[in-house]
Design a protein around this nucleic acid. Sequence first.
DNA 1: AATGAATGAGCGTTCATTCAT
DNA 2: GATGAATGAACGCTCATTCAT
Lengths: 183, 183, 183, 183
Amino acid sequence: MAAAARVFSEKGFGGASLEDVANEVGMLKGSLYNYIKSKEDLLFAVVRPDADELLMKARRLSGTDLPASEKLRQIARVHVEIIDRKLPYVSVYVQEIAGRGISQEWTDMDREYMSLIEKAFMEGVEAGIFADDLDVRVATRCFIGSLNWMTRWYEPGDPVRARAVADQLADVFLAGALARSRN
Amino acid sequence: MAAAARVFSEKGFGGASLEDVANEVGMLKGSLYNYIKSKEDLLFAVVRPDADELLMKARRLSGTDLPASEKLRQIARVHVEIIDRKLPYVSVYVQEIAGRGISQEWTDMDREYMSLIEKAFMEGVEAGIFADDLDVRVATRCFIGSLNWMTRWYEPGDPVRARAVADQLADVFLAGALARSRN
Amino acid sequence: MAAAARVFSEKGFGGASLEDVANEVGMLKGSLYNYIKSKEDLLFAVVRPDADELLMKARRLSGTDLPASEKLRQIARVHVEIIDRKLPYVSVYVQEIAGRGISQEWTDMDREYMSLIEKAFMEGVEAGIFADDLDVRVATRCFIGSLNWMTRWYEPGDPVRARAVADQLADVFLAGALARSRN
Amino acid sequence: MAAAARVFSEKGFGGASLEDVANEVGMLKGSLYNYIKSKEDLLFAVVRPDADELLMKARRLSGTDLPASEKLRQIARVHVEIIDRKLPYVSVYVQEIAGRGISQEWTDMDREYMSLIEKAFMEGVEAGIFADDLDVRVATRCFIGSLNWMTRWYEPGDPVRARAVADQLADVFLAGALARSRN
DNA sequence: AATGAATGAGCGTTCATTCAT
DNA sequence: GATGAATGAACGCTCATTCAT
């Protein structure tokens, strides 16, 4: 599983051969079929647990009565924390599955995750703590894009930094770059 | 070229065969070799002009003495405008080249574009118009991630909307979601 | 085509590899795909023309107003003549397709051929020239079985002998082994 | 054994995997090797007992002083009876072994069975009860072909019908289809 | 006697690439 | 400039067989 995640994230799902995966674990490609039913199967098996975990945590946060800004911050933390811990897995998800209409099931997961974030943005607007001319759809997609893009630059293995990055990301989306006139 | 962009963006570079491309343009795959030297060649040819254009426009804007916030807004506009006009090409770039270390040349382009944006953020901080605790590296990468992620959700063909989306994106990154206390 | 017929008839369709076929014609197995779409495709292409020919000739004979015994004799001649001329092709048909429910189309062909022969037997019974206690279904199937079994013992390449064998086969089915009391 | 017969007769020897066989009997393919030495071994084991039985019974009948026509009738009965009782086994024999030169041993069995029948035909001719222009070789092969072809159409499990079919088959080969002028 | 895991060879198929015409 | 045919390597997958447990 970990080998597959590594190989898929390096070469892409299409570009990686099962022989590559098998070599990583020191067996022949045919032997993999004692564990998987097909290459696609392996892809889904690699990617599903963390996708499930993230969605579940986001659901839980969404159900909370935290203020919108706090919800978004926490979601960012959770998301980055998974990236930090399981980067190859998440990379594979982002590159091979997210936003591609692979199957109804995956499309539904994608959409639900997005709509949880969108709801947080909307709650913020409705509560008056977010600007009322905020374009919620665009903000949501940029928020997610920023998180997913981390798979292309974040260097994992440092939970403290993960937390810091998540907070900075949240700061940008909440307060923006401009200096606040505090008076 | 356009055919290749379409095919590569739909099926991915690895997943598309030269026969697919040839079919799109009504010839046999062998005949493509009258125009290209290799499949990889074709990939670069598809992607280069718009990458060049975007980089050049960003360079020009960066050299301006516009305020940092305006530079970022304009870069966003230019970037989104190209996405709107050439989505398949940009998609291929984002999925197959950006942030993968394909070659020194492409890595350099990537890096330069990123550093132009990072410079704008830094100028803003130095000029005091951006918050002085802004994490410039993170902000830059999120900015770019948000733009690149648009290739996964933006529906092209509407320059007016492209402009609007770019502005909303810039608004988020500049002012954030929180309502400003205007006084 | 001829190479495939030879190889399939020697090793069986399942036991033969496309590499075997390719070797017979001096190319690599991949090159076969310039001519066929799949291995199954090749099987059908090998087998169809003669199957069609035999069915058409049988239809024509069936439509005639020859006496039943003559119809059967002529069908036997036509059938054996094709075996003599195209043994490998017919062998493949008999071993891989006949009576196996490969597809509706082939099942229909099989059934039609059989029913043409059955009809001849029935005509003979109705006309009173065949014994009225003849079991038409069994006779038909034995007739066809005898012809198809020839693919396992007949040595082709001698049209004169083919004709003789067909006549002897017809004699057996018409007059049987017993000596007629000629009076 | 029965499982193997079923599987081989359904999918063919080449098309069936040992895993198919193992599944039928509720174990894993590896475990089969506690009972067999190889896949081919299994094939022979499946097929041998009934082949032996049929040959032995045919030998015994051949040694009798029954008239030729009665010998043939009895052989047909025995043959069809085995088909009725053990269709999958016989199917495998007919499709995978009969008339293919698998090994000397099997070829010998085939040949002996055929020559027993041929001898009966010859006896009939010599005794003057069969037509003296009967082509014994062809008649023999058609007789066997008719019997073997039954594996493709006969529906087993009804000994009474088996007996009837055998008799009808014998009637065809002895008396033919033509109505006898009884006088 | 059975399991689960591994092997190694082979197969059907795809595809980038070449090249004579 | 295009075609059609060929190549050679790779790939996903299957399977008979082996073997330690």
